[in-house]
């Protein structure tokens, strides 16, 4: 992989709707930071809910529900939040990489 952040295509940037060679990269090289951040958040969302000793107890109860049960259900919205943040971080970097290779054609596009 090239280390350059900007594409150095001699003919200028390719338009996204024009088919090009199959080996042509679809994205410019990645910056590691967004992927590291997302990776850490997602790892938390996997490891913490599986660490059973941390929640296998009856107390404290919440509205009569033992800790074991409400704590795990609490992790449902927490995971949704962590995945949501990861989505924002990764999609933003993804868009930058595509715009870099397509010469900013899709820049104004918000999906």
């Amino acid at each position: 992989m090239s280390s350059a952040d900007m594409p150095t295509s001699p003919e200028g940037p390719a338009r996204p709707d024009v088919p090009t060679d199959h080996d042509m990269p679809t994205r410019s090289p990645a910056k590691p930071a967004p992927y590291v951040i997302a990776g850490i958040l997602l790892a938390i969302a996997i490891v913490v809910p599986l660490f059973v000793p941390s929640y296998s107890s009856d107390s404290p109860r919440l509205a009569g529900i033992p800790f074991f049960y409400w704590y795990q259900m609490l992790w449902v919205p927490i995971t949704a939040g962590l995945v949501g943040i990861s989505y924002q971080v990764v999609v933003r970097e993804d868009r930058r990489r595509r715009d870099a290779i397509r010469g900013g054609v899709g820049q104004g596009e918000v999906r």
Binding site: P16, D17, V18, P19, T20, D21, H22, D23, M24, P25, T26, R27, D94, R97, R98, G106
Partner: peptide
């Protein structure tokens, strides 16, 4: 498959289209 395939999005052409057009 190519490395580029794994990051392609919906705006990138399909391989069949590339082969047809290029």
């Amino acid at each position: 498959t190519r490395e580029s395939d794994y990051g392609a999005d919906e705006h990138d052409p399909k391989v069949a289209e590339i082969e047809r057009a290029y």
